[in-house]
């Protein structure tokens, strides 16, 4: 298994929405830091999230488990979460495990933010 440190979960605030940019690979339990970042934002009151995977090359089953953990945490707080920028190989994995039926996946961050703003105009993948 390839491993790459994933400690650079950049976060940007876009209006009332937090956009998370996980780096590199989410194929190791180190990727759990993403859940930690999300926890902190939830505690600060943030309830809208976009996770943009445009810089993420590999997501495996461990990564799926971590992302489900993030989604569950947001939903437990009645928040909303959207995904964007998934590379095809990663989108296929989301599709295989059925996650694409559970969560909206957008072409890119802008489309996800459009949807999150309530315009309902964002373009899905």
């Amino acid at each position: 298994m390839q491993n790459k440190p994933n400690d650079n979960n950049n976060v940007k605030k876009r209006g009332d929405c937090a956009v998370l940019y996980p780096d590199g690979y989410i194929n190791d339990i180190e990727g759990e830091k993403l859940e930690g970042v999300c926890d902190e934002l939830l505690q600060k009151g943030c309830r809208k999230f976009v996770i943009d995977f445009s810089n993420t090359d590999i997501i495996n089953s461990i990564g799926i488990s971590i992302i489900i953990g993030v989604i569950q945490k947001v939903r437990d707080k009645n928040g909303a979460i959207f995904l964007s920028g998934l590379k095809k190989v990663n989108y296929d994995i989301f599709n295989i495990v059925g996650l694409t039926k559970q969560i909206s996946v957008f072409k890119d961050e802008q489309e996800a933010l459009l949807w999150a703003s309530g315009d309902n105009k964002g373009v899905l993948m």
């Binding site: 089953s61 799926i64 488990s65 489900i68």
Partner: peptide, 26 residues
């Protein structure tokens, strides 16, 4: 993972995450 030199807890944790991510379960 199961034959890696990682510590036991990390191996078992990674294993659980793999199981949960495969189906997937929360």
């Amino acid at each position: 993972v199961t034959v890696s030199g990682n510590n036991f807890y990390r191996i078992i944790k990674s294993s659980l995450y793999m199981v949960m991510g495969s189906f997937p379960a929360s």
